[in-house]
Each structure stands twice: as structure tokens, then as C-alpha cells.
């Protein structure tokens, strides 16, 4: 196979994988810190797309500003929902937290999807492109600037988020809660506030992803399903609850899908990802990078 074709496939894979990584980081965060298997994650992606559409199209904002607003909306929605739904749930549920919270997220997903349908109808709200020069040629490959920017945005956001987790006081507190809740309480961390912040951040990350891909995937109520199960592939592959592992895992899944698409055809990309996920759950359920998950960052 041509080296050039290989390079182009790799590049396409990374661009796809970057967004997967962004989604997966948010998912890992919620699962690792709050022990909630988030199955409404795709709906925050959807929310981001809608908000970005209206900011960009209706208000005429600069694309980066529109995407930033979408991120903020995702954060606000996440924080509000956590306060209204998950915080009271946590107080009431003594047993089977994982199963109960999972069911709640499924319900949340229905509510959000149908809510979007009620408010905005089943129409597709799309844009041709965010940026004026739509296509750039890298070697012989045409890459839409929007796609390249989505990778750049994903990279910057993930990088900033990692620095936040690693080096700031609150980031450290989030990691602490994911490792030992009692210990976190004993050093003075307010668990309720941290959980609320975590859910908000996860919503923000998903919404940013949805917003940056608006020209490729128009906003519509059911758009969250695919990003949701893609995120879960990545998280299972990388290791449940590890934020760090979500990044390389996202890139791997993105690249794998691109190669499957190229060599086997569009229908096969999901088959490959799913098969890998099944194998992973059977043989190495802790994921490629997981040994024993000790919190969202540490191994």
C-alpha cells in the first residue's frame, strides 16, 4: 500500500479519534468519580450541536465563540441535572447504585431526546461549514478545515483539562474523590460540590465535541446515539474509569475505524469496533491500559 495513502488514512483516523477521545474523557470522568455509567452522554453532545447551531446561524457568532458557548451550555446543563437528579438519588439509593444510576441516565436520555424533538422538531439543523476556506489539501488529500479544527479544538480542550486535573487544587480534589471518598472527606473536600462539578465538566466536554462537528453532523434529536456507543467502546477498550487511557484508546478506535472503512467497507467499521469490545470484555475487562483502576488518573 502507498505510504502516502497510509499517512492519509492515519491522519483521517486521528481526526476522528480526537473527537472520540474528547467524548470518552468526559465519560470516564463521570464513571470514575461518581460511579455512574452515563448513557445520556450522547444527549449532551446533541445539546452542544444545537446551541452551536443557533449561536452560529441565528446569532451570527464567530465559530469558536459558538463552540465555546456550546461547551458552557453543556456544563450548565450537566451541573443543573446533577443537582436536580443525581444528588437526591445518591442520598436515597443505598444499594445497587450503579444499576440505579444507569437506569436514571437512560431515562434522562429519553427525556432529552424527546425534549429536543418537542422544542426544535425532527428537522436537521446543519451548516455547510464553520470556516470560510472549506477544504485544504494536505498532499493529495482534501481535508475540510472544519474537521482539522475539530481535531485542534479536541486537542486543546483535552490538554487543558489534563493540566486542570493534574495541577490545580480542584483537579486534585476530583482525583482524590475518585480514589477514596472517605479520605477525600477527611481532608475537607465537599463531595457534593465535586460531584456536581464533575458532571458539569463531562457535559461540557461532550457538548464541545458535538458543537465542533456541526458541519459534518447536523443537529437533530437522535444524533447522540452513535457518539454514545462509540464513547463506550473507547472507554471499555482503554479501561473503565481511567481518564488518561481514554485518549490513546480514542485515537486507536478512530484509526481502526478509518482503516476498516477503507479496507472492508463502511458497514464493517462498527463490526470491528464491537468485536474488539466483546473480546476485550471477555479476555481483559480492565482494558488495554487497565491493571486495577485506582481512580480516574492513577493506575
Amino acid at each position: 500500500m502507498h505510504l502516502q495513502a497510509l499517512a492519509e488514512l492515519l491522519l483521517a483516523g486521528i481526526m476522528r479519534g480526537g473527537i472520540y477521545a474528547l467524548m470518552a474523557v468526559g465519560l470516564s470522568l463521570v464513571f470514575g468519580v461518581m460511579n455512574v455509567p452515563q448513557f445520556a452522554h450522547g444527549e449532551f453532545y446533541m445539546l452542544g450541536a444545537y446551541v452551536a447551531y443557533f449561536a452560529f446561524k441565528a446569532l451570527g457568532w464567530n465559530p469558536l465563540l459558538a463552540i465555546a458557548l456550546a461547551g458552557l451550555a453543556g456544563f450548565a446543563a450537566g451541573a443543573l441535572i446533577e443537582k436536580a437528579v443525581f444528588s437526591p438519588l445518591h442520598r436515597r439509593v443505598r444499594e445497587h447504585w450503579v444499576l440505579n444510576s444507569f437506569l436514571v441516565t437512560v431515562g434522562l436520555s429519553f427525556v432529552m431526546q424527546n425534549g429536543a424533538q418537542v422544542i426544535w422538531g425532527g428537522n436537521y439543523y446543519g451548516i455547510t461549514s464553520y470556516w470560510k476556506t472549506p477544504v485544504r489539501f494536505v498532499t493529495t488529500m482534501g481535508i475540510s478545515l472544519d474537521r482539522a479544527m475539530s481535531l485542534a479544538i479536541a486537542a486543546v480542550v483535552i490538554f487543558a483539562f489534563m493540566i486542570f486535573l493534574r495541577s490545580t487544587r480542584i483537579g486534585r480534589a476530583i482525583r482524590a474523590v475518585s480514589q477514596d471518598e472517605t479520605g477525600a472527606m477527611l481532608v475537607g473536600i465537599d463531595l457534593d460540590r465535586i460531584r456536581n462539578l464533575t458532571f458539569g465538566l463531562s457535559g461540557m466536554l461532550a457538548a464541545t465535541a458535538g458543537a465542533s462537528l456541526l458541519s459534518m453532523v447536523p443537529a437533530h434529536p437522535t444524533m447522540g446515539l452513535e457518539p454514545l456507543y462509540k464513547s463506550w467502546y473507547v472507554v471499555i477498550l482503554g479501561g473503565l474509569g481511567s481518564v488518561g487511557a481514554a485518549i490513546p484508546a480514542g485515537l486507536i478506535v478512530g484509526t481502526l475505524e478509518t482503516f476498516s472503512y477503507y479496507f472492508l467497507g463502511a458497514a464493517w467499521q462498527n463490526v470491528i469496533s464491537l468485536s474488539l469490545m466483546i473480546l476485550m470484555l471477555l479476555l481483559k475487562p480492565n482494558g488495554i491500559f487497565g491493571s486495577e483502576v485506582k481512580g480516574i488518573w492513577e493506575r
Binding site: R175, A176, Q179, G183
Partner: peptide, 14 residues
């Protein structure tokens, strides 16, 4: 109730 995955230093800082 230590944070086993973090360093001694980070535990103390926390």
C-alpha cells in the same frame, strides 16, 4: 484512607 494512587507529596498537599 490514603490516596493510594497518588504520591506522598500529593497526599500531603491534599
Amino acid at each position: 484512607s490514603l490516596f493510594l494512587g497518588m504520591s506522598v507529596h500529593e497526599n500531603l498537599v491534599l
